[in-house]
Structures are given as structure tokens and as C-alpha cells.
Design a protein around this nucleic acid. Sequence first.
RNA 1: GUCAUAGUAGCUCAGCUGGAUAGAGCAACGGUCUUCUAAACCGUAGGUCGCGAGUUCGAAUCUCGCCUGUGACACCA
Length: 563
Amino acid sequence: MDFKQQVTTALMGVLGDSLPADKVAQLIETPKTSDLGDYAFPTFILAKTLRKAPQQIAQDLVAEIDQSGFEKVIANGPYINFFLDKAVFSDQILTTILTEGANYGQSNLGKGGNVPIDMSSPNIAKPISMGHLRSTVIGNSIAKIMTKVGFNPIKINHLGDWGTQFGKLIVAYKKWGSEAAVKADPITNLLKYYVKFHQEDVAHPELDDEARAWFRKLEAGDEEATQLWSWFRSESLKEFQKIYTMLGVEFDSFNGEAFYNDKMDSVVNALEAKGLLHESRGAEIVDLSDYNLNPALIKKSDGATLYMTRDLAAAMYRHDTYNFVQSLYVVGGEQREHFNQMKAVLKEMGNDWSDEIRHIPFGLITQGGKKLSTRSGRVILLEEVLNDAVQLASAQIEAKNPDLPNREEVAKQVGIGAVIFHDLKNDRLDNFDFDLEEVVRFEGETGPYVQYTNARAQSILRKANQEVTMDADLIVSDANAWDVLKMLSNFPDMIIKASQEYEPSVIAKYALRLAKAFNKYYANSKILADDDQKNARLSLVKSVSAVLEASLALLGVQAPKAM
RNA sequence: GUCAUAGUAGCUCAGCUGGAUAGAGCAACGGUCUUCUAAACCGUAGGUCGCGAGUUCGAAUCUCGCCUGUGACACCA
């Protein structure tokens, strides 16, 4: 039964023709606190047509309304407050969750449509930083959320595996590098060579010429250059894989920039054929003044292609390959203009599917208020942050629960869970200043708080020593349980909201509120008391755990059964 | 300068398709472990919702202007 529909029907019974049903449904709101009821209807809009004070209207309507099926319906000032029948609600929601299990909240809005998601995308030979973490975990969570509403996401790691920096890298490696060092610690040493190159080329500008020459060789398919490039790439990837494993993120494609090398000519040709390409200041551009945008640079004055060219090729490749219903790019907000340009160019080419391309921007991470950058040395290495977090979690377990079995495993789940959750709990667009203590906090509104709540629920289920049955009605009448039951019923709506807004924080905030409601119930009620509602209470605990675990899963956070 | 994005408690943020006394967490202060995991729970204190107009029965929420922060503004990605 749809409870909101029940309220709408009741209202329509007394409103007559004064308001259409969809308008009524739209006006029904959820009061801030349970003591004001479960649904409320404000009567202000009726004041004009009925020529009565809203307070009076509320009273009059309540007197006429059919209250059957509700616990009570009362007038409260200008509002009509509806209190649902708690027994019916309790039984219905708990039965639904126990029956559907992990499928609770699943829908098929997406009808199986393909949704490529451009995410993570680190640069070869450079370490993965906190900035990449955002794209990785946001993209991963969106993929899970999209799956839950029936889409088929395709996670694409658009690696930064091409560009002039590879010329520099090859020069540096040949001058100062060693195979053994790269094999032992690829990222650290490749980065070292790269940095040394930039130090040396100040005094020795001829290095830049060498680098350019090597990059040209690479582009021409020179065997040695290609072999080195491919080796750097695979060593880097191995290193990245360690971090992805820690984060529990998997990809469907690692087609990066290099993959589109042979696909750019056709883009340029197509633009030319449609007469969109213009020469300006020596470069080839597409004019976008109709869109109030700067021109899109397709070719540099030296004839070389650019980021835009490559992304256009990638966009078209993804369209042709996946026939997507949406194409997402989880990329920092500073690239807004770029994606607007890209969509505009595709549109100019006559591709109306360009409307289904969505840039999912996110805020910047700063340190001490300053932007991070590899060159200036302000980098926060993700691996270090994750390791620190695991260590802190381990210390926490030592202090709180030293007898816990498989402590190391749990420390990883909790430490890394804290980092991921911290990144996802706020609006994507919020900037945040990096503070390790803040990121790996275990108390308050954090991932570990949600995990801990679930661990407590699991602990009760273990101690109960009895299976939850659905033989009798699952009625939990405890007042403290009411908010928990209502929170449980909200989960499907939250998933839909999160999917429409591409906002994992919707799920994270929901999980926090559910956990909070459950902890309050837990602190005030004896769940394992032997009375006739014990089975019902256990079904509530089981449902809470199921939904908490499902929520964490949507965020890509693990849920240990004990911690 | 243009465009985008943000400004809510000491700090970090919810709330923003208009609605009932503006909510959390952290930090501070004070309570609760002989009873299901105290990574928890309860309480106290803390706010001109950047500023000023406008629309409305009603504005943190919508419109306009201003101030401040951040980002982007063609040959990087």
C-alpha cells in the first residue's frame, strides 16, 4: 500500500472539486518531527476560494474526513496532520524488506540502458592523489546507484597515457634510470626521473629537443619508444591496481588517451566536411559564439591535436560502441567549460545524443587553502592516506575491541571505509581542505559510525539465537522504533533521488540518519527481552542491517559483521 | 573584466521544485557502561541563514542588485 496515496485519497474525499488530485499529492509534505504526524496538508491555498481562515478550514476538513485506516487525523493550526496506523505500516515495511532482501529498493527505471562513466583517469608515471580519489569513488558509487535503478554502467578509466611528457620520461629514463628501480617501485622512480628532467632542463634546454624527438618517434611507432612507453604504462597500471584493490573498485575499460590516437583523423575530417572548422591565429577551431562559449581548439598552430580532439573522438567512440542512453564524465568542476564546448561541438555536428552527455563535476581538494599540484610538490598521495587510515583503525580496534578476530581485515574495511565515506557524504560540488584527522575520523557522522551501527545490529542477531520468522505480524509498537520504520521505508525513494542527481551523498546522508534513528532505539529499548514482540523487533534489526549494508554497498564501503 | 560556482552556529556541513519554533556532527560544558559492542546515547550552550530590495498569506529556499571566496576564460589535460 502506498501511504501517501492513502492520504491523498482521504483528502480528495472531502475536497471535492476544489483541487485536482495531483495538486493535492504535490502539496502533501512530511513534517519535520514525528509528533506532528507522518504526513501533513497545509490549507493555505484553500483560503481564497473558500474565503475562510486556514485554521478554520483545517478544522472543518478534519471533521468530515474519513479517518478509517489512520491512527488519527487532527487539525493543528493551518495544517491537517495525518498519523498512520503504526501496526499496518510496521508489518508491511518489515515484511517487504525481509522478503526482498538485497533487492529492496531495486527498480528498473534505466531499462538496462548503457551508461559509460568516465572516471578515475590517473596519469601514467604519476602517483594517484586525493584528487583522483574523488573521481574514483564518486564514479564507482554512481555506477552502483545506476545499477540499482536498472541501468548498465560501464566504468571507463580514461588513463592519461599519452602526451609530450612521455618524450621527457624516455629521455630521463635513458639518462638516469634503471630497469631494476622501475620494476621495484615504478611510480616513485618514474616520477623521480620526470622531476629530475624538469630540474635539469633549466640549465640544459637541449633536453627539451631530445624529448620532443622521442615523442615524435613514439608517435611514429618507433619500436624502442613504443616498447618503453608500453612498459611504463603496464608498470604504472600494476601500481594503480593495488590502490583500486584497496578501494574495491573495478573497471570495465582502461582505454585511455592513447587508445584514440588513430581515431582523431576521422573527427577532424568530419568537422571539415561539415564546414565547421575554421582557421584562427594559426590554429584550427570550431566557433561556438552561438553557444556563448569560447572557440573549441581542434588543432594547434603546429598541426598537433589537442585534448578536445581526443575527447571528441572518445565521445563518438563511446556512442558507436555502447549506444549509450547517457554518457557520464566524473571530472573536476574546473573543466566545466571544456565539457560545454565538447557537447556544443557534437551538437553542431548534428549529433543530438550530445544532450545525453553529462559532466558530473566535483569540488576541489586543497591543502592549507591552496590548490594541489604535482609540479609544485603539493601532493597528497592516496596510498599514504589509505595506509594511515588503516593504521588508525587498527589502533582503534586495539583500544576498543582487542579480542576481535580477523582484526587486520576489519581495520582495512573501517579505515578505508572512513576515507571513502568522508569523500561521499557531502555534496559533490563542495570544496574541501584536506585534513587527515578529519578524513579518518571514526566518531560522529562518519562511515565507521554507520559500520558500527550495523555491527551492533549483527551482534544482536547473533545473540538472539533464533531465526526471524514472518509467521506472525511484524508489529513493533515501541515509540522509539517509529522513526526507524519510516526511515526504512524511505530507502527506495532515496536511491531514485541519488540516481537522478548523480549524488552519492544522498545515500550517505540517508545511511547516517537511519543509523542515528536505530542507535536511539537501541539505547532506549531492550531488543532481546522475552516478550511477544521479540520476533518483530528482531525483524526490525535484521531489516536495519540489510538496509545499512545495502546503503554502504552503494557507496562502495564495506560492512564488517563485527568491529 | 566575462562566465560559472559557493556564502547557514567557533569549525565542517544538512535543509534549497516556498510552508509549522532554521537542524546535525566536531569542538566546549554536564550526565549515562553489574543489563543486547560507550566507535554509542541523553542534556546545556551556541544563528542579523553574506548585505539590500522585490514577489507572496508565508522566503534560508524564488527574482534583481551589491559584497566576498573559489574556478574557468584558445594552442596543458
